[in-house]
Simulated scan of single mutants.
Amino acid sequence: MSSFPASATLAQGSPFAPVLKINDSVITQYELDQRARFVMLLRIPGDPIEGAMKGLTQDRLAAEQAKKFGLRLTPEQINAGMTEFASRANLSAEEFVAAITQGGVDPETFRDFVANGLLWRELVRGKFGPTVTISETDIDRAIALGTRRTAMQLLLSEIVIPVEGDPEDEIALANQLRREITTESGFAAAARRYSASPSAGRGGRMEWVSTTQIPPQLVQLVLALAPGQVSQPVQLPNAVAIFQLRDVTEDLRTEAPLLNVEYAQFLMPNTEDVFADAEALGNRIDTCKDLWAEARDLPEDHLVIEKKSLEETPKDIALELAQLDVGEHSVALTRGGNRVFLMLCSREPRPEEEGAELNREAIRAQLQSQELEAQAGVWLEELRSEAIIEQP
């Protein structure tokens, strides 16, 4: 098996020339071009060509499995899926199609994107749904974790392995390191050798960080470890990471509020001088709002300021924000060949809904969805490893 071509570019040569063969089907240059444009319009982090090829590869593998199991979608299901997807942008399906058409994306590309996503979801539910059982104990444990209001302090080390294209090799390396590392010194040596994080020079050692400031999924992952143990690999945009828990403390006097974070992502050319340029930029500005003046003559997507709950914040961004105070910045991340000047604008408690009752069935559905997602990820990697994937 070979990975897809990371160097593929938008629409070169014949639009119907195949760019990748997956078993008995092919992905054409036109499909890649269209999906990449769609990915860019959605502002999905990462390289649009990489993301497009990965998504199209999953589509082909899903289509093979759907044919094997005799699974088909009705036009009503696809139309409902398109309507639901468009509603996330507060648009009707017709308004969404009109908007992407102006961006050079064919309506059929949107329809295929939605249909293939629905098809994969139905496949996963059919294959794993009957085997996923969520007990009342599982729900009680989730409620306890979700309502625990005591702040925890974690002392972690990290190894962040950059990914270009298919993460299969990087995941394999992360799993190998996890099996082999038994000491803090061993982890530090591996971090210096393999990690692309700024902490690599410190052997991957991070400062104390509160559980309120990092993604809940990661909190659950590392709290299940004993000091010295290494976590399962965590997939981040353009990277795979593993963490070693060095110590954990509990502050019984401090409540852990639910948090909203506001942050700015300012894209800078990833040149040899980018770190000096970022430092100069940091010295020129005081708040995130000051970045608007810096981005005045740049494309719109070069500056994005958004406010999200911690749970909704991408893992790699949340990990960087956890190490920042308001007004501080990081340049550890990259996006599509650019360096990200990431600035923390604010961090504040999220208002809680008074008198809200716990919906155990909703929690059960959420836990089922999480388990199915995990099973789907493993299955997809199995399908990829078994497929014959090659460039024509």
Rank of each mutant, 00 (worst) to 15 (best):
L372T: 04
Y194W: 11
D24R: 08
E108G: 04
L367G: 07
S195C: 09
R364P: 08
L177N: 06
E357F: 02
I242K: 12
S210N: 14
T313A: 10
L380W: 03
S369N: 12
G46Q: 10
G117F: 01
R347P: 06
E170D: 10
V105C: 11
E168A: 08
N270R: 09
P162I: 00
M1H: 02
C288H: 08
P107K: 04
A318L: 09
D106Y: 02
I317R: 15
I22P: 10
T182Y: 06
G70E: 04
V160K: 10
P269W: 01
R339A: 09
G51D: 15
Q368G: 08
E328V: 00
Q229I: 00
E108T: 01
L221V: 00
D301N: 08
A241P: 05
R125P: 01
I285V: 11
Q235G: 08
Q391T: 09
E50G: 11
D290Q: 14
A332R: 10
D277W: 03
M268V: 03
G204V: 00
I171T: 09
A293F: 04
Q265G: 03
W379C: 11
E279S: 10
R179K: 07
F38R: 07
A226R: 13
I388N: 15
L372G: 06
A276N: 13
W292Q: 11
V97L: 14
L258Y: 11
A376S: 11
G282I: 00
N116W: 04
E50W: 06
W379T: 02
Y194R: 09
L291Q: 07
M1W: 01
G327R: 07
E352W: 04
L310G: 03
N270Y: 02
L91Y: 03
P392N: 06
R347M: 08
F266M: 08
A356S: 07
R193W: 03
V304A: 10
K315I: 04
G203K: 05
G129W: 01
F187N: 12
I159Y: 07
G146C: 07
T101Y: 10
L225T: 00
V240I: 04
L310P: 05
D24P: 03
R148V: 00
M343D: 10
C288I: 01
E122Y: 03
L380I: 01
L303I: 01
G46C: 06
A189W: 00
F266L: 09
G165H: 07
M268P: 06
S197A: 09
A80Q: 15
G201M: 06
P167Y: 07
E180L: 06
T334D: 15
G81P: 04
Q65S: 14
E84T: 02
L342G: 05
V132S: 12
M268C: 04
V234H: 09
E272M: 11
Q370V: 00
W120I: 03
T74P: 07
S3G: 08
I214L: 09
A256L: 05
L42M: 12
W292Y: 06
M40W: 05
P269M: 02
G204D: 06
T182F: 09
Q265I: 00
S385R: 13
D301V: 00
R335P: 03
G327A: 05
P107E: 04
E255N: 13
L258F: 06
N90P: 05
L56N: 11
A188E: 10
P5C: 11
L267A: 10
R88Y: 08
A17Y: 02
P215L: 03
S197W: 02
